[in-house]
Amino acid sequence: MSEMATNKPATQDRRRPGTFRAALKRDLLLAFRNRRDLVNPLVFFLMVATLFPLGVSPEPTFLAELAPGLVWVAALLATLLSMDSLFRADYEDGTLEQALLSPQPLILVVLARVTAHWVMTGLPLTLMAPLLGLMLFLPSEGMPGLMLSLLLGTPTLSLIGAIGAALTVGLRKGGMLISLLVLPLYIPVLIFGSGAVQAAVTGLPLAGYLALLGAMLALGLVLAPLAIAAALRISVSG
């Protein structure tokens, strides 16, 4: 017994990276088994690019001018669309309670969940973006800016959105409230993200925009898990 007690800190430290890995593995597996839900945001993303020229104007010069903002807005809304379900299933089947009661740090579990969410939505959106760019006649000089800004921006969108999802998980209809809570925080990401694409199109240096997006991501990575964990405890406590 005393041997066990002295060994405990060492085993815990050895296992701690395991928590994140195990949670990430589980979340990716869950996402994979429910993969039909994952297609929704991607279809939405594609639909915007398909319908917009039909609804407004198929004029290439006009579309090329709108493309940076349009792709970014579509990516942002597609992310937002997928946010509501982030913790809902876990809340309803009681696995969220179990995670909250675990002696392991909740922020690791939460970070794994957001990472899995990004891998299943943000990353595919980023990879699909050039296709949308092409459909909207975005000049080819703009492509690297589009990809890089989405690569840095979508994880921030997932992190911020998860705060809103955690705050509203206890409410039966939280979808609308998430949008209200989260959209103001999405705006800076949108401005600098589409700004980066504009700059890339006109041949201006990208570094400033990307640095700002990177800074937002770094800040989000450090602070958002704390906020998400605290919000989940409040939601479940209610």
Binding site: R26, L29, N34, G94, T95, Q98, S102, P103, Q104, V109
Partner: peptide, 23 residues
């Protein structure tokens, strides 16, 4: 009240996850 079991995971995967939460 809710058993805390993921319907899409197998029993073994469910318990593995619980074990990861409780070292």
């Amino acid at each position: 009240h809710q058993p805390g079991v993921k319907a899409t995971l197998t029993p073994e995967e469910n318990l593995n996850w619980y074990a990861a939460l409780h070292p």
